[in-house]
Computed example of a mutant assay.
Amino acid sequence: MNGFKEMTASTPRTVLSLYMRVFRVARTWQAHSGVASDTLTERKYILQEARTLFRQNQHVMDQETIKRCIKECEARIEIGLHYKNPYPRATYLPPMGLATLKGRKLRTQQRLRKQAKPIYLQSHDET
């Protein structure tokens, strides 16, 4: 409970507000295809993804990590609404596609790939 005292008073409210916003978006979501079954599938995906990610991060106490999670959630909401697609947008970065200095190893490639990953995909593992 000591880590909770380190948080600013507005952080829990911000996170709860964001969680409720995701549920409002899911409740009013309409699939771009207009097919009712697609709408239901996408609504279920939005709700399941929100529950999974919020539960996964509920014990995070580090302010920087919390801010990063909030930014990711906001970005995913805005991108989903803009493109009318609730699924994360793919990034097309070949496995060894980032240039490195001569003599660097795979560890450098992995670090560069992690840095190049967009904020809206931070919670997803690379495939």
Rank of each mutant, 00 (worst) to 15 (best):
M1K: 06
N2G: 05
F4L: 15
K5M: 04
M7C: 04
M7L: 15
A9D: 13
A9V: 13
S10H: 10
R13F: 05
T14G: 02
T14L: 14
M20N: 15
R21V: 02
F23V: 04
F23H: 13
R24K: 01
A26G: 10
Q30H: 11
A31R: 01
A31P: 02
V35G: 01
A36D: 08
S37N: 04
S37T: 15
D38K: 10
D38M: 09
T41H: 09
R43A: 05
R43H: 02
R43C: 08
I46D: 05
L47Q: 03
E49Q: 11
R51C: 04
F54P: 07
Q58D: 14
Q58A: 08
M61V: 04
E64Q: 15
T65Y: 02
I70V: 15
E72Q: 14
E74H: 09
R76L: 07
R76G: 04
I77H: 07
I77K: 09
I79P: 08
L81Y: 05
L81A: 07
H82D: 13
R89H: 09
A90I: 13
T91E: 03
L93K: 00
P94L: 10
L98E: 00
L98N: 00
A99T: 11
T100S: 06
G103S: 01
R104V: 03
T108P: 00
Q109S: 10
Q109D: 08
R113M: 14
Q115V: 12
A116F: 09
P118G: 08
L121S: 01
L121Q: 07
Q122G: 02
H124C: 03
E126L: 00
